[in-house]
Amino acid sequence: MNIFRLIGDLSHLASIFILLHKIQTTRSCRGISFKTQALYVTVFATRYLDLIFGEFVSVYNVIMKLFFLGSSCYILYLMKMKYKPTNDPSIDTFRLEYLLGPCTVLALIFNFSFTPVEILWSFSIFLEAVAILPQLFMLQRTGEAEAITTHYLAALGAYRALYIPNWIYRYYTEGSWDPIAVLAGLVQTGLYLDFFYIYVTKVLQGQKFELPA
């Protein structure tokens, strides 16, 4: 554990609390892509199989994994059941097969061993890298977002961005690196650059999040 990893994980936790807070206080999941949230459940379910099949890492690791699995399922429940009328599938139109197909192929090619658990682990890493695309696509379509939604996205983007210095630190202290996680993580962070730019230049200056026409 190093400071970058810890702050990254806390940022990930914060993003989920911000999202839950947004849904509960506005009693609405407007502006949130159900597809992206469903992809996160898929990511966690396929990656955290190691809770059952893998080796025990730490109590911290187990608790965080259970939290991410539980909270992401709860968010789906809120969107599909409790606040269903506020969820508008007609603007959430990104085609999931464009993500699931390539991630499946990549996972079959790039993995640490050709076993179901390792293939699913790779799949989860690749899918996480692009899982935000339906959400960003939705943002692009509507052209604006509530401030709280942008705080959620910023915290979520910061999480993987902070993993990058964590990997550099671990490379120097442990002497090894994980090419699959690192390359996918760089792509994942890269997808947020546009968003971060507008977030910093507009939302943090107190303006509304609006995409240039």
Binding site: N61, F68, W121, D178
Partner: peptide, 10 residues
């Protein structure tokens, strides 16, 4: 196979 790094990240 490449040597498998520990999957301890979340």
């Amino acid at each position: 196979d490449v040597q498998k790094p520990e999957h301890d990240e979340l």
